[in-house]
């Protein structure tokens, strides 16, 4: 019996190795990587989110336990999730994150749309330089871009110094350490993500349609809203997602510019893990962030727009 089983197993392995040649090997390498280092860790996170926090190393309990020879006990602790919904701090964290991400996305759209239009209307030579200048800050360090705003906004920073020097104010204005500063930082950091898909969409518009609208007596605002906006909807959608999704889980910007009261989900995960050493809570927060916000947003458009952006990034640089 055992002999037969081994024979089958060896045969199976043999077939497997024979089949994994050439093309299959190509498929297997990246698949294995993503499976092991991306998908599997998500399940570990799910597992830990259902464990109990204990004082040990690692600080969570095992879900599966052999009580005696024949009894397998599975203990699922739903308390972590229940706490997220009952404790006001976590709920407020989700609301703060959503508001900051939505407000930043809207501001990026308002700032990015005129810029995309202006870039699309410039001559071809200038346009390539302008597009490269949009990408360039993206390549300079993210932390440095946040630091630039600390230097400008902090109580001993440039803006407050200039205002005090000319005696416009007596005490430094509280420009930093509030949610507006966090919004500003996110807009500054993610504006290129908005401009690229918008530019892509605007560029494709046939200018004669707009001229026809003007000839027929349409006003600029009306032309914009009834012709330009409908024709660029895919770009608006793509840009909004590219700003909104990273903004919702953002940690660095709210941490450095948002001050103590701007507790976003990203910061809550960080604090639970590093300061409270509550791994199950951090894991439950992560799972909730993924299932409640990131998955629904992504499922609504299937990443097509990101490819759209990457394609253009390459043309520009």
């Amino acid at each position: 019996m055992i002999y037969r089983f081994e024979e089958i197993a060896i045969g199976w392995v043999h077939n497997f190795v024979k089949n994994i040649t050439g093309k299959r090997l190509l498929l297997v390498l990246p698949s294995l990587w993503v499976l092991l280092f991306f998908i599997f860790p998500c399940f570990i996170l799910l597992k830990i989110s259902l464990a109990e926090g204990i004082v040990a190393s690692p600080p969570y309990s095992d879900l599966i336990d052999w009580v005696s020879d024949w009894i397998l006990q599975i203990r699922l602790n739903l308390g972590n999730y229940l706490m997220l919904f009952t404790n006001e701090m976590y709920l407020r964290g989700f609301v703060t994150s959503l508001i900051i991400a939505a407000a930043s996305t809207l501001c990026c759209l308002v700032v990015g749309f005129p810029m995309a239009l202006a870039i699309a209307r410039s001559s071809e030579k200038v346009r390539n330089i302008l597009l490269m200048l949009i990408v360039l800050p993206f390549w300079t360090s993210f932390l440095i871009r946040v630091y630039a705003w600390i230097m400008l906004l902090s109580p001993s920073g440039l803006i407050n110094n200039i205002l005090m020097k000319y005696q416009l104010i007596e005490v430094p204005l509280p420009l930093i350490n509030n949610s507006y500063a966090a919004c500003l930082g996110i807009i500054y950091a993610y504006l290129p993500f908005m401009i690229f898909p918008l530019y892509n969409a605007v560029e494709k518009i046939d200018y004669s349609i707009i001229e026809a609208a003007y000839d027929l007596g349409s006003t600029p605002p009306k032309t914009f809203f009834s012709i330009v906006v409908p024709l660029t909807t895919p770009g608006i959608y793509a840009g909004s997602i590219l700003v909104f999704v990273p903004a919702i889980g953002e940690f660095v910007i709210p941490e450095l510019l948002g001050g103590a009261q701007t507790l976003t989900i990203g910061r809550l995960v960080w604090n639970e893990f590093f300061w409270n050493l509550s791994w199950p809570t951090a894991a439950a927060l992560s799972i909730l962030l993924l299932t409640a916000i990131v998955f629904p947003v992504m499922m609504s458009q299937r990443r097509k727009e990101i490819r759209f952006l990457m394609k253009d990034n390459q043309n520009a640089s």
Binding site: F38, P41, C42, I44, L45, V245, P246, I248, G249, E250, F251, I265, G266, V269, W270, F273, A282, A283, S286, L289, L290, V294, V297, M298, R303, I306
Partner: peptide, 10 residues
């Protein structure tokens, strides 16, 4: 689209 904190933690 994975938030960085989630990726780091997992």
């Amino acid at each position: 689209v994975m938030p960085e904190v989630v990726m780091g933690l997992s």
